[in-house]
Design a protein around this nucleic acid. Structure first.
Lengths: 150, 150
DNA sequence: TTTTATTATTTAAGATGTTAAATAAATGGA
DNA sequence: TCCATTTATTTAACATCTTAAATAATAAAA
């Protein structure tokens, strides 16, 4: 076996250590670790929390807009909303003017869960800014927003 | 209902539009779109591709080191490696010196699949650098690496 | 108005993610 | 040696992701 393949002349992919998909997944894992720990106390998954946060911030939304803001695919969201309805944390009803549309809204119980986790969520966010620096985090968010142009 | 809640005095979370977890997921979706399209022609998933790439780059690895480099949890990886073994793209055998360890290696068929997709994968990576700029991508990777310090 | 196309959402099926428990082999004393 | 621990991996159970197909309601066209 010779050192380098001869048919593969410099046609190499970036090393997996500098691979964008892998790097993004790793960073997400790191960020989500403490958040998942926090949410397990409320019996919520990360995705359920995202839906509650978006509805609390933007008010009632139809399924499509909710999925865009929570970054969930509709098939996943359908099931997640069903479990949140069963838990009494959101409501879902057909839009009277277009009965294809389902309007989802957070309940007061759902808002209470957000309040219950507010302090801890802020602590986690503050910790990230302390370690990485606020400027770095802002720069990161700016760069990530640019991915919409792909 | 008054405009602002009075019990919630400035104790707000960052807007979901500037939420790190959501921003990281969205960016990952954007990056993975074209890669998934490419891989579907080879009948591979994103995770199967990651395993092949890591093994091709680093050589045979035990399960734990493979999972670290491919950013997969061991239970997921166990299933994925099983399907890759069935496809003949990797082999798996117990380490003679410690039979708890499973050594996974890429086969020549697996390496051929990487070669088959090399051009397209490079085109996709080049497109990202064209749109965002190489410096921005490098800066992003640097920032993401810092997340290990969390 | 009846058909056809489009839009919004759900269902279905197979793969992966996540956490906890189980298995199996190696290690470290009594 | 025997037994308790530790380590590496797998299994199990349930949630989510992804793609494609199915439903159901609206809109557009003939």
């Amino acid at each position: 076996m010779d050192g380098e393949s001869d048919s593969n002349n410099d046609r190499k992919l970036p090393s997996t250590a500098r691979s964008l998909p892998i790097a993004l997944i790793r960073a997400r894992e790191k960020v989500m670790g403490p958040i998942r720990e926090m949410l397990s106390n409320s019996g919520l998954t990360e995705q359920q929390w995202r839906i509650l946060r978006v509805l609390d911030e933007l008010g009632p939304l139809d399924s499509t807009k909710l999925s865009e803001n929570a970054s969930l695919l509709l098939p996943s969201q359908t099931r997640i909303v069903q479990t949140l309805v069963e838990k009494g944390l959101v409501t879902r009803q057909a839009d009277p003017s277009d009965r294809r549309r389902q309007t989802v809204a957070i309940t007061s119980s759902g808002q209470q869960i957000i309040l219950d986790n507010l302090d801890e969520a802020q602590r986690i966010a503050a910790h990230i800014e302390t370690v990485l620096g606020k400027e770095t985090v802002d720069r990161l968010l700016d760069i990530l927003e640019e991915f919409d142009r792909l």
